[in-house]
Design a protein around this nucleic acid. Structure first.
Lengths: 354, 354
DNA sequence: GTGAAAGCGCTAACAG
DNA sequence: CTGTTAGCGCTTTCAC
């Protein structure tokens, strides 16, 4: 007790019991007698004792911490999902080691490595990659339960995942546009540099949400017998790029009467371009966005979107992971949870000009 | 090595060296010979060894983890601040245990307690309270460095803090409205139930950002010789309440020609009310918001705001905390870092109707 | 029900 | 430079 914070030994001495008994009281295990419980608790309070989870973890082999890796906590989708995870985790007595990788795969790798060193009991990761998964495979190999959030990963092997019905959601949204009579529908997707191509080359099942939504867009066009003009497909790195590309499109492609944005970031950029341009929304051009934001109903026209249950996705990932941690069901086959999105139609979508 | 993951002992045995030497190589301390370094690293790789920070922490007394407590990670202000903290922390080799308390003080208390048990090296907290600070004082008493973010706290004692120039920022913003000729300026602030009153009763220095901004509003009115009509002051719990109150105000108080919102949440509500109402913005009524959002420039009119350097606030808090952790400067007096906000004038603010 | 002793995986003295 | 020996603070047998 001299230097640092009081230990269980200090408490035991003060209460006149053995360290073992003090441990039983303070650690809440075993069956100490009521009398000793009181004495030990009194001493603990007096000395200002607080349990040392580090020491506890080393012997129990569990840290009661889960690691969460997302590409950017400032993205409202991830912020909300993290709240979902966090609520589940805390309810089960877990804390959360969070890493926001800023879209940097190298940083993600080192983060995953660091979390393993910290001996998290499990991990939830929304990877910045769908093809590079060596770091995730190593998590599995180390026997640490892993849940993939929002995207699959080729290299991770068979692993639990929680996903959105991306392709179907996009198809529904674009079909809605086509049903209104639109024929030329542009799409704004995230550029997934080379990766999605190489992934496809390997007949990969894993793709980014944005790519899957693009597939859904193609599905809808197919179904309506519309041939996709390559000029309608805008691959952009960020909101600014999206804005610029859509702005161009609006003037160079007068036949386009509707735009579908596949992510919240792209949605912001596309909306900005439309606000800046000469064509009126929805009279001249319709916009269908992805993710429902606070501002969806603050702008005019109000934004039509595919709304994701971001909180539920996070919560589901938490539930799946905690299930692995709790049960000996740890041995069961990987699960895949798919949540449904919903189409919210507001003012930014209308029939094309006559 | 039999059951669990390989330990330093397994590696040592495999490499034919002592555990101490293996530790020196794997832990990066001491001065092992190049020859042994190779042998140990080879063995480590072959066995798939990864350092156990838990064991390391128990002996070094440092976890290289900081605890971060915010009221809601979905609030873009905190998300951005957390990114600032996170960047600083990772650069210094720290991970971040994050708790999003959902505005619940009880949850904050238990979170702080849990983080102490987890033996975080330091903590950054944006408390849900400015008066109740027993849990924060206990952090100090345990000798754990603490930095307050975005708000002071009465009960915490003398402690490092990183704040915005709330009062001056609000005064500038409201003065801008008054300079344009507005006389009746309403203000939308967070309701801080009873707390701010009791805090004031005790002559407290600590107040919520929202309250300080309200003071700044009063300062500006004072300076302009305008008497504040109590009917202009709207205290609201959330965005919906703000929306409703402002909607009412707009019809019942025709003399009000400008509205100042003191938080990002209130800003959203106020803007919505104005969009819903009959009075045009900015011709009939001006709106000055707080915090710059992505949507500030997506709405029409574009929103004038007091912009906070949220990332910098987080980064500064990180820097201060890491300074305490690094130096023996830990003994120096508590610092108070105050960052400046900036006024961004856009279309939502204009002179009052003639 | 309680205590003594061992040990979790690692680092830190201290000898050699 | 390398190995031996102690622990860090706690839980967990195992006797008593």
């Amino acid at each position: 007790m001299a230097a640092g914070r009081p230990t269980i030994i200090d408490v035991a001495r003060d209460a006149g019991v053995s360290p073992a008994t003090a441990g039983r009281v303070l650690g809440g295990y075993g069956t100490p007698s009521p009398e000793l419980v009181r004495r030990v608790q009194d001493s603990a309070r007096r000395l200002g004792y607080r349990a040392n989870d580090v020491a506890r973890s080393i012997v129990t082999g569990s840290t009661r911490v889960i690691g969460v890796v997302v590409s950017d906590i400032e993205n409202p989708f991830f912020a909300r999902a993290v709240n979902g995870i966090s609520d589940r985790a805390r309810a089960a007595g877990y804390e959360m080691l969070l890493v926001s990788t800023r879209m940097d795969l190298a940083r993600e790798r080192s983060a995953v490595e660091a979390l393993m060193a910290k001996r998290v009991d499990g991990m939830i990761v929304a990877s910045a990659s769908v093809s590079e998964g060596g770091h995730l495979r190593r998590v599995r190999e180390a026997g640490v339960p892993l849940v993939l959030l929002d995207r699959r990963n080729d290299g991770a092997g068979a692993v639990d995942s929680v996903l959105l019905d991306n392709r179907a959601a996009a198809q529904r949204a674009v079909s809605h546009l086509l049903d209104l009579g639109h024929r030329a529908v542009a799409v704004v997707t995230s550029a997934t540099p080379s990766e999605s191509r190489s992934a496809r080359r390997r007949r990969s099942a894993a793709e980014f949400p944005s790519s899957l939504r693009f597939e859904g867009y193609l599905d809808a066009l197919d179904e309506a017998g519309v041939t996709c003009d390559p000029g309608w497909v805008l691959r952009c790195d960020d909101a600014d790029a999206a804005c610029e590309r859509v702005r161009d499109l609006l003037v160079t492609r007068p036949e386009v009467t509707a735009v579908f944005a596949t992510t919240n970031v792209m949605t912001g950029g596309a909306f900005r371009a439309i606000m800046d341009g000469d064509r009126r929304c929805p009279e001249d051009v319709s916009l269908m966005g992805f993710d429902d934001h606070e501002w969806s109903t603050l702008v005019r026209p109000q934004l039509s979107v595919v709304a994701q249950p971001a909180y539920d996705l996070g919560a589901a990932a938490g539930t799946v992971l905690l299930g692995r941690l709790a049960g000996p069901g740890s041995r069961s086959a990987p699960s895949e949870t798919i949540l449904q999105s919903s189409l919210i139609v507001r003012g930014s979508v209308a029939a094309p000009p006559a």
